[in-house]
Amino acid sequence: MFRPIIGAAVTVLLVSGCSSASTQQEGATRAVDTFLGEVKVPEKIDSVVILDGRRDQDIVLSLGLPLTGGPQQDPAAGYELPSPMAEARQAAAPEELFLENEVNLEALAAAAPDLIVCHEDDLGEIREQLQAIAPVLVVAASPEQTWQDDLLMVGAATGTSAKAEQLIADYDARVAEVKENYADEIAATKVSPISWSVGEGTGVRGARLHSRVLLDVGAQPADGFAKALETPDDSVRFSPEQTLEAHQDADALLVSATSAEEWRSATEDPLFGQLPAVRAERVVRTDRLTFEGGPITAMHTLGLVEQLYGG
């Protein structure tokens, strides 16, 4: 709502912000083709700022780039489970420049980063203002763009391609290991990654990272999951009354419930309690932090998938 106002106000601040950035841009740069066209990134990067805190943060931290600023996780979201990136983020200790989903361009300009990495959702109407502050790399630019694609793109732009390839190889190796260790369970178990919302029922999205990880290990999709994969936007929703009908064929469920209230609502729901997967105690809880991410979150999700099959 405040973006246009902040955007207008920040142009004044950008004068000082740009002077340091332009000095750096006069040095050696790497050019990469991205969603925004050709982007020239300084070879020497001392500070990277992210805007979203999911895939952008995961990739920056995984590649060991100097993360100096980003959003503050919204305390009102009620995250109860520890973030997969908590340890890496604590080590990087980035400055909290604004609240999650409320990009503050003034704070961003004042941080004078060498590079901005952001999610496509955050680009909105502030694309030009961001580009005036620093070169911008956009991740998740399209639904088809995987975290591996983005990792390679950011790797190429920052001179960390070798590290990016290694991270992808590590993930693939871990996937192969899970496939081998749980081959029988994977073949015999129908699974669904569902999200639970208080009073709104359940949903499944095939494009979410945890869905992709399940597909990577060769999971057998339950009906709800299969339906989601068949729809044009990879998603399907079920009302509270449809909970049992929609997921009763699932032998195991990866349930996303972010806050304690959401989880309590799920566990106290009479239809959720009747689900065969719940009765068989084959439910692993996760939260919305595994909807989106990069190598760290994908590896963390593989751990959840192992729990799902390993009991």
Binding site: D74, A76, A77, L99, N101, V198, G199, E200, P240
Partner: peptide, 19 residues
């Protein structure tokens, strides 16, 4: 001042029996 309040409040102010 608080977007989280807005999220909960908008359901309350619209009036809903869902759930």
């Amino acid at each position: 001042l608080d977007s989280a309040s807005l999220d909960v409040y908008r359901f309350w102010t619209v009036g809903s029996l869902a759930g």
